[in-house]
Design a binder for these strands. Sequence first.
DNA 1: ATCCACTGACTAAGCGATTAGTCATAGTAT
DNA 2: ATACTATGACTAATCGCTTAGTCAGTGGAT
Lengths: 349, 349
Amino acid sequence: MNQKAPTLQDVATTAGVSSNTASVVLNGAKSNTRVSEATRQRVLDAAQQLRYHPNAAARSLVHRKTDSIGVIFGVAGSSTDYVTNPYMAGILQGVLKVAGEVGYCVTIFTQPWVNANASAHRFRDGRTDGIIVIASPENSDILEGLSSLGIPLAAVACPGERYSVPTVDVDNRTGIEMAMDHLRELGHYKIALFTGEENMHSTPQRISSYRNRLKDWDCNLPAQWIHTCAYSGAGADAALRKIWQSSERPTAILACNDAIAAGVLAEARSLSIKVPEELSVMGYDDAEIASLQTPPLTTISQPLQQIGELTTHLLLKRLQGVPIEPLTVLLDPKIVVRKSTSVPSEDNQ
Amino acid sequence: MNQKAPTLQDVATTAGVSSNTASVVLNGAKSNTRVSEATRQRVLDAAQQLRYHPNAAARSLVHRKTDSIGVIFGVAGSSTDYVTNPYMAGILQGVLKVAGEVGYCVTIFTQPWVNANASAHRFRDGRTDGIIVIASPENSDILEGLSSLGIPLAAVACPGERYSVPTVDVDNRTGIEMAMDHLRELGHYKIALFTGEENMHSTPQRISSYRNRLKDWDCNLPAQWIHTCAYSGAGADAALRKIWQSSERPTAILACNDAIAAGVLAEARSLSIKVPEELSVMGYDDAEIASLQTPPLTTISQPLQQIGELTTHLLLKRLQGVPIEPLTVLLDPKIVVRKSTSVPSEDNQ
DNA sequence: ATCCACTGACTAAGCGATTAGTCATAGTAT
DNA sequence: ATACTATGACTAATCGCTTAGTCAGTGGAT
């Protein structure tokens, strides 16, 4: 602060009362202090005149409550694109909305998580009342570290059950099943899966759901048809090239997000593979870029903002000590059919 | 906090010393207190064992410094899409990066700005050391209100000069000139301008730059060729329809951001207007969606992340009391030529 | 033996706000 | 006249941390 903010004492002095009286006037009475109407008005006038606003730090010292919630973005790989990532941004948007409704600020922690031993206690710094963890990598000990310190938490797309952390996610199993079923109905069964980072919570779930579906259909596919890319889209080009050179080609590729699918489309173009005639491609997320691809992507839509809103509600509940049941909420994905999928061509059947 | 965080006193007790001694050990000595090596070690061990981390609120009360900076998003119209807006997100990303480098947290204020009288003092609440204002509407008194309370500020795309607030922006004049010159070189002079909200700082600047360019060329264009849309892209379709029905049609449309340009492209498709053969379209921002449009958008690229980084540096300087000169920094836009612009067709010349 | 400097650590005040507890004064009931 | 109850407002402790100021003890110099 450059220009010192007026304190409660300043208001009190201006109004000619004690700071206690001023405090009582300015926030309903919680002591048995009584104030006459005239005095009350004098205090209110003084506060108004000085543009007084209580100091949040001092207040939170007493209340042990900061009226702000923290957000930690999980990091896949070395990526530092938090809010420019449409998945993260969509969720954060939902968090901001609900936080705003209840008068909370949102503090984004900028320090990278190293490990529980080195990092966890930094987040118990009295800056926030609780923390929302968004998409922590599977091999990270964020949830474990924070929850073992007793920090109120809520999580998105994390293995929260393990640490009794209320968690919101979109049903990865259902999403993959919807995608697989859509492709199957078109006539595909040679379906390759291009996943995101292995250490993200969603990846093993989606892989296992993919495998189950194939098993349901009695399909036995080459193991190398599961390719690990990055959610940034990196690696999708190489994966497509590799799979296209192999002896057996898939007729469809299910990408685990739209960026990966976009990478596939771009590489398909440069390999002169016609989509969807020769190869159907599906995305996941229904990000803004999905409908803008050529051809527009068939994809699985996730209600990102709703995830953020719901997670915030859960954290607020936890802060109020309201029991949360069930601990994990799975929202439903939707399939959005556009132009990147079609029946497989004859010679690929 | 559920599980009470250990206090300095807890550490001191565990180590068998006074809280003062513990404090001195844990943060370089600023009192003349001396500590023996043995005692020092005992304190450090105790802190480690208890996972002690100082309470930020208590600390900031003493230091009058919170190590966190605030962000307020200006709001155009009733939009509440802060971080899902790629412009805002890009800037915020830059803010997060620099803040992280110097160990600051970033607090996003979620309460909408009403007016200086009602809102300003809320932001002098000791929660943040300073505030970054991003793209406040032209008719808002955010900067005036906050700066008159002596809150350290830095701004993006705001009329900061007026209130001695260090401000970063991309040179709107240059950007429009580059766009206009590109179109002129292709042979266009019948150029319509589709702007964002009138009350955004950039809008009048861009309009005047557009007008100046036309004047340079001795062009006299119908006034209604300037259409006010929304930066969300809303209104672009109607504007195109209207302009296309008029007696004189432009050969090119310069949209003030990519969302507006995308709206124009979509409407052009449904009106069967061929882009760029019949109509050249330019965007602005070079958002992710620009290159994905059909045809890919020629656009003016703004270094969003760099804006955020620079603005944060300016705020940090101001917090340190370093004089800032010059007060306003204008970054250079770049033109990205893609496929949505070409020479105008013969019959349109 | 006396003085001084240094070592090692403590006590207490204060940051700004909240709140339990105290205390005059005035008015009312007995 | 006495006891009691509102009324109106104040004092002081506390939240967790920092830091200016104080102080006892030890060892070396004079």
